[in-house]
Design a binder for these strands. Structure first.
Length: 597
RNA sequence: GGGCCGGUAGCUCAGUUGGCAGAGCGUCUGGCUUUUAACCAGACGGUCGGGGGUUCAAGUCCCUCCCGGCCCGCCA
């Protein structure tokens, strides 16, 4: 501390957009290829004391979807870079659970991440709690202490599923335990200053504005009308009036009473900077919605009301889901729980390692592209493929934090007891992880995602491995753990094929014969093929016979394959035919090829 | 209306201090003399959102316009 920043440095420090522009004036300085490195540079430039604190946070207002995970994973990548630079890093995540419920979401989610319609829970009970803090509202699922706790738990689970170590801090707790009390008293003692600053950003700040919202002792709702303040005794008198919520007004009960400084909340514009102070926040990423409103006022309040230094900021653009904005209330969401049925966690983390300044679509339809991108990055990292200098440099930096939790869990025996995320700051464990990544894990094998989807048609795990072997994805030398990892993708990719019903979603049409129209030669060839299958041969032999049969009947080879796929899947393409039919029950194949049923 | 972020091949995107427009996927063609998955080779594909300017040189810097998103009431 103590270093005086120049004005331009200060401007840059406050600008949440200038990612990577870390030039100190010298043109030949290395330009960071990975945004998290650039952010880490900015944080280090302030000479922070360990532990460096990285914050994120959301209101537990409803389903925490993949877009909300930015609040966890953007910070994670920066944390990992700093840890690699031998800093101790604490990643905290505030659930802003003293915020009032302002409207009822249409969709909720149970603790397993299943989306549930509002009508399936006790909506009436929820409706009566509009205006009350999330932590004062009963959990509509009845499984957690409160509505707020329910959704905070889902967020905590999401982080855990992704192997990220976060300390979840309840804002309600910060008030109730008194952590915010000193700052609350300070703001109330310096209301004029607070009003002056906030008034530059909000028109409604007038003489009567009091930067504190008590919770009504009668109805439990957050109120806005403070009638008297006595910071010496630590009490605030209020009248419970209505609260605007969008285009509606939540009615107050009219009760007049007194609250302590712990029985209410600071308005968001103060609460955010208050959190920076109380938690000693050094860095905080936030969505673009905060960039032009909350952030500038937050900086101003931090510097000129609380007289603290705001954290290093970073804006991230929002993701869309299949081209449409995420919407918790409308149920257009995907949770980490869902995504991990389709992708390995390292691929999910990798998605968040990409440039935060670019809007990005999380396209379920084209998840194969994302996985291919990850696989290539992995190959670049291990030097199995070459790319541009920049690509290789980026892989060198972005791959390790993406894969680290996976490696730690795969080789958990080397790390002693406990989950990796509890060892994030452990130097020894990090060295072990690095050593594993650069040595044993180099034998990791990836089956291309779309091919994994093809393999998914085989119920028999042994057959999946067989085919992966014949295709050269697995060899004699592939270690057992790598075989498991590689084949683990098959379940994910076939779930993807099912969910998107794409061209890899081959479904064997057992119950009825698909519509078809074959010429005589093809029909004759199919009959002969049926006879051959009936004799009982292995897959390769059948595969060869398909060629021979086609040749004998002067049928273009492609036509005969098409005919087979049509009969089995009602598709024009499919898996390698011979080995596939060899694994099906013989009678079914024979009858089907004879077009009997 | 004002401020900010983004706009590169059909799709997904990469493009440090200005220095000959890139990758993957898709498509097409060919190869692997028995594989319609896999794999290999090649091709097609772009007025870098439009227009102006600075420069020997602009995707990159400046101005302007268009499109999309966010913010500019309240709330978070």
């Amino acid at each position: 501390m103590g270093r005086v920043m120049s004005e331009s440095e200060q401007d840059r420090a406050r600008d949440p957009y200038t990612l990577g522009e870390t030039d100190g004036g010298e043109g030949d300085e290395d330009h960071a290829v990975f945004w998290a490195e650039a952010v880490a540079d900015d944080i280090e430039a302030r000479e922070p004391t360990d532990p460096i604190v990285i914050k994120g946070g959301i209101s537990p207002s409803g389903v925490p979807h993949l877009g909300n995970i930015n609040e966890i994973l953007r910070g994670y990548f920066v944390a990992e870079v700093l840890r690699d630079r031998d800093h101790e890093v604490r990643q905290v995540f505030t659930t802003d659970d003293r915020d009032p419920l302002r409207k009822l979401p249409r969709k909720l989610a149970d603790l397993d991440g299943n989306i549930v319609d509002l009508g399936d829970v006790n909506a009436g009970a929820l409706g009566q709690n509009l205006g009350a803090p999330y932590t004062e509202i009963p959990d509509p699922f009845g499984c957690c202490d409160s509505y707020g706790d329910h959704f905070s738990n889902l967020i905590a689970d999401s982080a855990e599923l992704l192997g990220v170590d976060i300390d979840i801090v309840s804002t309600t707790d910060l008030y109730e335990d008194g952590a915010f009390e000193e700052l609350t008293r300070y703001v109330l003692d310096n209301q004029e200053k607070a009003r002056d600053v906030l008034g530059q950003y909000q028109d409604k700040v007038d003489e009567d504005y009091v930067p504190f919202n008590p919770i009504c002792g009668e109805c439990g709702k957050v109120t806005e009308t403070v009638t008297a303040v006595d910071t010496a005794t630590g009490t605030v008198e209020y009248r419970c009036t209505g609260m605007e919520a969008g285009d509606r007004v939540i009615e107050g009960c009219g009760y007049e009473g007194a609250a302590t400084l712990r029985e209410g909340k600071l308005p968001w514009r103060f609460e955010w900077p208050a959190g920076w102070d109380v938690l000693n926040v050094d860095f905080e990423p936030f969505g673009k919605d905060h960039a032009e409103g909350s952030w500038p006022s937050g900086v101003d309040i931090a510097e000129n009301v609380f007289e603290i230094q705001p954290p290093v900021p970073m804006v991230y653009e929002w993701f869309t889901l299949d081209g449409e904005p995420f919407s918790s209330s409308e149920g257009h969401v995907v949770l980490v729980h869902d995504v991990l049925e389709l992708l390995e966690p390292e691929v999910v983390r990798f998605f968040f390692s990409k440039d935060p300044s670019k809007g990005r679509d999380f396209s379920i339809e084209r998840l194969d592209l994302l996985v291919d991108d990850f696989d290539r990055t992995e190959r670049l990292y291990y030097g199995d493929e070459s790319g541009t200098e920049r690509e290789e440099a980026l892989a060198a930096e972005a791959y390790p934090p993406s894969i680290r939790p996976t490696v730690a869990s795969r080789f958990s025996g080397a790390f002693g007891a406990g989950a990796w995320r509890e060892m994030a700051n452990d130097r020894g464990a990090r060295e072990t992880a690095a050593e594993h990544i650069d040595n044993v894990f180099g034998d990791c094998v990836r089956i291309p995602y779309t091919f994994a989807a093809v393999l998914g048609m085989f119920d028999d795990p042994a057959l999946r491995a067989d085919v992966a072997r014949t295709e050269g994805h697995l060899t004699e030398d592939t270690p057992e753990w790598a075989v498991e990892t590689a084949l683990g993708r098959v379940e994910l990719a076939s779930e993807w094929a099912r969910r998107t019903d794409n061209e890899f979603n081959y479904e064997l049409k057992r119950s009825g014969i698909p519509e078809m129209d074959f010429d005589d030669a093809t029909a004759a060839a199919l009959d002969e093929l049926a006879d051959f299958v009936a004799e009982g041969h292995d897959g390769e032999t059948i595969q060869g016979e398909i060629y021979e049969t086609a040749k004998r009947h002067d049928v273009p080879i492609g036509d005969l394959f098409s005919a087979g796929y049509r009969l089995l899947f009602d598709e024009s393409e499919g898996p390698q035919l011979g080995p596939f039919v060899a694994k099906l029950d013989r009678e079914f194949v024979v009858e089907r090829f004879r077009r009997n049923r």
